[in-house]
Design a protein around this nucleic acid. Structure first.
Length: 471
RNA sequence: GUCCCCUUCGUCUAGUGGCCUAGGACGCUGGCCUCUCACGCCGGAAACAGGGGUUCGAGUCCCCUAGGGGACGCCA
């Protein structure tokens, strides 16, 4: 049997982080089994679905590099088919028309709650003769669910879950206006698309029991279910926009790499022994729904950053330059020239172990594309330029001018200068750092000089107020 | 209110009755390295929610309590 999984977002917003993980798991499982991963846009709620949301979701999946097989299915286009299935169920006697008004249903629920009973539809039209139908009320179509006994689902993640059938009411298949409900649409589409494994958030666990009987009523094979726990915010509460339930594009814009995002999301709920850094290839090989944990996980930005830092260090310098460019250009408001790009590439080895995100990398790399402006805004760096620093810089510039322009020889020159004047290396290196980078923290200063080149280095030193032209 | 699910360091987790004086990772922290900041390396603090069973033996199995989450729509 070929495994077929699907990801069915409703296009009412961006692709948020929990959905992204669900998509990842479905994608991994399909790839692991050599099966298919399908995308279905559940746009049956015409009022809330938007074209922008469809675009955002597709962009999000593409960014995460979770490719789907075949064309995306738009659920709204299958409405006629869904209605036909409801009609078939009606003809088979597995469904019936219900003439209750919304007000009547509300009253029914309120009373049930008052009496401490489950707030479910009581089946009052299940066996009533259609001739009793009130005039002027358009009926809905409801499925006939079993009235007693219990139902057990062997969930791939949760294990065996049993519920009393009295908890399952005759839910609506077709609304009064003839349009299908979610419950009908998913089942019909999952069947028609040949879905074999439904892996989704455990907020759908209850729905599985209802859908189970809908498949059964049509004599369709019942797919396997795997309900994964939801992701919570750092405070343990439901993930909301305040703490992490951002669209994946927000994480992209914060400067996280897609492979880091995948690795982080993978470890949120799934594990393989002590493995932390798991390549996508390795994940496909190892992934198993049974290894997904059953308790909800909290979203932890610090860990994401750490994983991201790992993948940044593993990235090729040229790729990092391309990825960081937009961040730098956004910060300085103008394009980076070819000199700047060349410096970024040459300096990347020193830059990348110092950043956990592309945004941070951009901030640290700014000095390579534009000169520090005096007076420096960085107070600590400004302090390094005080007192006798200008004199040291003037003299050091002289020592530098004679050196071969390589980090090692530049270092030798500065060390020799410091020794000759009886000062620590830091006394010279720190003013140089402030002069060249405008900051008190940077890659190794001799590496910086090499990358900047002789002319630029000397120019930046001479730009420091109080430094006398020497070289 | 009814039903379902969950509960190991702050966080993500390993653990499937003895290998656990509970392991790893992030974070925190002490140190080393050092031109700064990182990286890296070495070390530390830090958890089986509580209570009953079952068993020679329980983090691992059962029950109860507490806490957390989810679902109860003519939304998806």
């Amino acid at each position: 049997m070929t495994v077929v999984t699907r990801f069915p977002p409703s296009p009412t917003g961006y692709l948020h982080i929990g959905s992204a993980r669900t998509a990842l798991f479905n994608w991994l499982y399909a790839r692991h089994c050599g099966g298919k991963f399908l995308l279905r846009i559940e746009d049956t709620d015409r009022k809330r679905s938007t074209q922008e949301a469809v675009g955002a979701i597709i962009e999000g999946l593409k960014w995460l590099e979770l490719g789907w097989d075949g064309e995306a299915v738009f659920q709204s286009r299958n409405a006629a088919r869904h209605a036909a299935v409801a009609a078939a169920l009606l003809a088979k006697g597995r469904a019936y028309r219900c003439y209750c008004t919304p007000e009547e249903l509300t009253e029914m629920r309120e009373q049930a709650r008052r009496e401490g009973k489950p707030t479910l539809y009581d089946g009052r039209w299940r066996d009533r003769d259609p001739s009793e139908a009130p005039a002027g009320v358009a009926p809905v179509v409801r499925i006939k669910m079993p009235r007693d006994g219990k139902t057990t689902i062997a969930d791939l993640v949760q294990g065996e879950v049993t519920v009393g059938n009295e908890q399952l009411d005759d839910f609506i298949l077709l609304r009064a206006d003839g349009t299908p409900t979610y419950m009908l649409s998913v089942v019909v589409d999952d069947h028609d698309m040949g879905v074999t494994h439904i892996i989704r958030g455990d907020d759908h666990l209850n729905n599985a029991f209802r859908q189970y009987y809908l498949f059964a009523a049509m004599d369709w094979p019942i797919p396997a279910f795997g309900h994964i726990p939801l992701i919570h915010g750092a405070d343990g509460q439901k993930l909301s926009k305040r703490h992490g339930a951002l669209g994946v594009e927000a994480y992209r814009d914060m400067g996280y790499l897609p492979e880091a995002m995948r690795n982080y999301l993978l470890r949120l709920g799934w594990s393989h022994g002590d493995a932390e850094i798991v390549s996508t290839q390795q994940a496909i090989e190892w992934f198993d729904v049974a290894a997904i944990g059953r308790s909800p996980a909290r979203f932890d930005l610090a860990k994401l950053e750490s994983v991201n830092a790992h993948y940044m260090q593993a990235s090729a310098n040229a790729r990092l330059v391309e990825l960081v460019l937009p961040f730098i250009e956004k910060r300085q408001g103008e394009p980076v020239g070819s000199d700047g790009r060349a410096r970024l590439l040459a300096g990347m080895d020193g830059l990348k172990p110092r950043a956990k995100s592309l945004a941070e990398l951009a901030g640290n790399a700014l000095f390579y594309v534009s000169r520090p402006q005096h007076p420096l805004t960085n107070a600590k760096a400004a302090a390094m330029l005080a007192d006798d620093a200008p004199q040291r810089l003037s003299e050091a510039a002289g020592a530098l001018a004679a050196a071969d322009w390589k980090a090692a020889s530049l270092e030798n020159a500065v060390r020799a200068y410091a020794e000759a004047h009886g000062v620590g290396l830091g006394k010279v290196a720190q003013p140089l750092r402030a002069a060249l980078t405008g900051s008190n923290a940077s890659p190794g200063i001799f590496e910086v000089m090499e990358v900047l080149g002789k002319a630029e280095t000397i120019a930046r030193i001479q730009a420091v107020p109080g430094v006398t032209a020497h070289a």
